[in-house]
Design a protein around this nucleic acid. Structure first.
Length: 227
DNA sequence: GCTGCGATTGACT
DNA sequence: GTCAATCGCAGCT
């Protein structure tokens, strides 16, 4: 008995991702990030992203002070994932962009689950100790939540999103059944960035889909006070 | 080697 | 609204 071979999952090519962070960020909105693991597949439609530029030009970027072991992926070729660990417990995922040798990335801040909702919920429930029932809109609302829902962590750092055999990829937005709704993209200051990089006037580098319930409320960066 | 702190989240007042 | 959790990175001595 033969099994039908499923068609290859559509995924974005490297050329489609080969832009600077400010050009790529709004283009990522509405696309799907998919992770297929042994546990199953989760797909997230991206609703909120932030652009981070490179060495010496963006004080909010990890790459501002130059290449380090942690940020080397950001300096690599576009279309790879940059996943970093923060606050001692959270993973956040970026899409690397811009030409090889320059640092640029787009942080994936939020999305809505469009496939694998139950798997995403079980992953998120594990991280919240199951104390609160999780609404669908909260499953991938926030960069660390999105990463958790997709099942991504440090093992995904450096993964090539454009590898046809890869298990993490970006897919085009699903075709609307009827007339496409008017999509309004908004932009504003980045969330949680302290110091000059949080300057709302100079760095309005957060992009989101207007009206999406998964988008973060704005929170300025805070400098912790020593005690 | 030592120290400060972060592209966050969830719990709590 | 406030605050703690928790640890790797990067800057400094």
């Amino acid at each position: 008995m033969t099994h039908p071979v499923p068609p290859p999952a559509p995924r974005l090519t490297r050329a489609a991702l080969d832009h600077g962070p400010l050009e790529l960020a709004p283009r990522l909105l509405g696309l799907m990030l998919v992770h297929e693991s042994d546990a199953g597949r989760v797909a997230v439609r991206l609703t909120e992203v932030e652009a981070y530029a490179g060495e010496g030009e963006d004080p909010g970027s990890h790459a501002f002070r130059g290449r380090t072991p942690r940020t080397s992926v950001m300096f690599g070729s576009p279309g790879h994932l940059y996943v970093y660990f923060t606050y001692g417990m959270h993973w956040c995922a970026n899409v690397v962009c811009g030409p090889d040798g320059t640092a640029g990335a787009v942080l994936l801040r939020a999305g809505t689950i469009v496939d694998g909702t139950e798997l995403a919920r079980s992953r998120r429930a594990g991280s919240t100790r199951g104390r609160q029932p999780l609404a669908d809109r909260d499953l991938a609302r926030g960069p660390a939540r999105l990463t958790t829902a997709l099942g991504l962590d440090g093992a995904a750092n450096g993964v090539d999103l454009c590898d046809p055999a890869g298990r993490v990829w970006l897919a085009p937005a699903p075709a609307p059944r009827a007339a496409p709704p008017a999509v309004v993209i908004r932009r504003g200051p980045r969330v949680g960035v302290s110091g000059p990089g949080g300057d709302a006037g100079r760095y309005p580098w957060r992009f989101w889909l207007d009206g999406e319930p998964t988008v973060s409320p704005y929170r300025p960066g805070v400098r912790r006070v020593r005690r």
